[in-house]
Simulated assay, not measured.
Amino acid sequence: MSREHTPPTGSAAPEASYVRLLPGSRTPTYAFVHPVGGSVSGYVDVVAALPARTECVGVRARGLSPRGEPHHTIPTMAADYLDELLTHHEPENLVLAGYSFGGLVAFEMARQLRERGRTPAGTVLLGTYVPRHDVSRAERAATFARLISVIYRVPVERLRLHGLDDSGMVDRAAEVAERCDALPAAYRQADLRRLFQVLALNLRMAQEYDVPSYDGPVHLVRPERPDPQDTLHAWRSRCPAGVLTHDIGGEHNELMSGDHGVRIAQALAVLWPG
């Protein structure tokens, strides 16, 4: 799997979302949309377990570097990602897939493709829930803190985000993370405030996204825990062509890694044998 490449700061090239993860000649091509943190590095175990010669590409968030501005709505994000993807691939050869937040974006991309008169080879939601609109500020702050802890290994108890708005949460989290010895080496020289801003924006975008109807088939990969009881019903109410479920097991936060990632790759290979 190739590494994501970020040109040096000051480069004239605009920030691209499209990144090649694995070259290949088999069809279809899997396009993995970033989860809430913005990076596509979490797909490494799935990509590595796919059959030989499978082409995989990623779509990472804009705004992770100074050369790009982050998106503010999922429909706008999906439209821009589609435009970039379709300069490289025919839509009928693409399986659009996304983990958690990325599944919402992949779903919206598939829906917009149908509006353009085209249809992807498949749409896969990996542990993706239909978002709630009634999330309180305290709930969103707790989710933000949990994700900072999971992704960046910053202890939740050190964040103390209660009562802060999104900008305040981002500033506070960046200040704490910069002093955290457990911060992974890959992020030691990163602009943490920029990374955390993308995370906070994506959380807000998910809460505000009103999931529309989509008349193409959808595959829903589910973990064992947590899985709200109405998840399948919520997706089926928006997908009249049907939702096929694939139960992988395990925790939501571990769905893409280790044996669970291998099981996802095996399921994809069966669905689209090439």
Score class of each variant (00 low, 15 high):
13 A>P: 06
212 P>L: 11
131 P>R: 10
158 R>S: 15
169 M>E: 09
108 E>P: 02
158 R>T: 14
83 D>I: 13
56 C>F: 12
63 G>I: 06
207 Q>W: 04
70 P>L: 10
38 G>C: 14
98 G>P: 02
150 V>F: 09
197 Q>A: 14
30 Y>V: 12
208 E>I: 06
271 L>H: 07
67 R>E: 15
243 V>C: 00
182 A>L: 10
117 G>N: 00
1 M>R: 12
35 P>T: 08
266 Q>S: 15
242 G>M: 01
33 V>C: 03
12 A>L: 14
79 A>D: 15
251 E>W: 07
59 V>K: 10
48 A>Q: 11
237 S>L: 02
160 R>M: 10
151 I>D: 11
199 L>N: 08
141 A>D: 05
175 E>Y: 06
76 T>N: 10
168 G>E: 01
9 T>A: 14
225 R>N: 13
142 A>Y: 05
13 A>L: 15
142 A>T: 08
34 H>Q: 07
7 P>N: 02
114 R>D: 14
51 P>G: 06
47 V>N: 02
117 G>D: 00
205 M>L: 04
162 H>T: 12
194 R>I: 02
15 E>V: 00
152 Y>Q: 05
87 T>N: 03
103 G>P: 01
29 T>L: 11
166 D>S: 15
183 L>F: 05
71 H>D: 14
225 R>S: 14
160 R>Y: 07
167 S>Q: 12
50 L>N: 00
89 H>S: 05
210 D>G: 08
43 Y>P: 05
243 V>K: 01
83 D>M: 08
101 F>S: 06
10 G>F: 13
230 D>G: 06
245 T>V: 14
40 V>A: 01
18 Y>N: 08
50 L>R: 00
262 V>Q: 13
34 H>K: 10
47 V>F: 04
66 P>Y: 11
65 S>R: 14
3 R>D: 11
252 H>G: 02
65 S>I: 10
35 P>G: 10
133 H>T: 11
113 L>N: 03
35 P>L: 04
251 E>D: 15
71 H>L: 10
20 R>Q: 13
42 G>T: 06
253 N>F: 08
111 R>W: 05
209 Y>A: 12
223 P>N: 12
81 Y>P: 06
206 A>Q: 09
84 E>Y: 02
36 V>H: 03
205 M>I: 01
36 V>E: 04
210 D>F: 07
82 L>P: 00
64 L>F: 11
195 L>M: 11
28 P>W: 00
60 R>I: 12
8 P>C: 05
47 V>G: 07
259 D>Y: 03
252 H>D: 01
63 G>Q: 08
65 S>K: 14
184 P>A: 05
62 R>Q: 13
180 C>Y: 05
75 P>F: 03
223 P>A: 06
31 A>Y: 01
194 R>W: 06
36 V>P: 03
99 Y>L: 08
59 V>G: 03
263 R>P: 02
239 C>Y: 00
62 R>E: 13
58 G>E: 02
131 P>A: 05
16 A>C: 09
184 P>Y: 04
67 R>V: 04
135 V>K: 03
187 Y>D: 13
40 V>E: 01
95 V>L: 01
96 L>T: 00
147 L>A: 07
107 F>M: 09
208 E>V: 04
90 E>V: 12
148 I>N: 05
24 G>V: 07
27 T>Q: 13
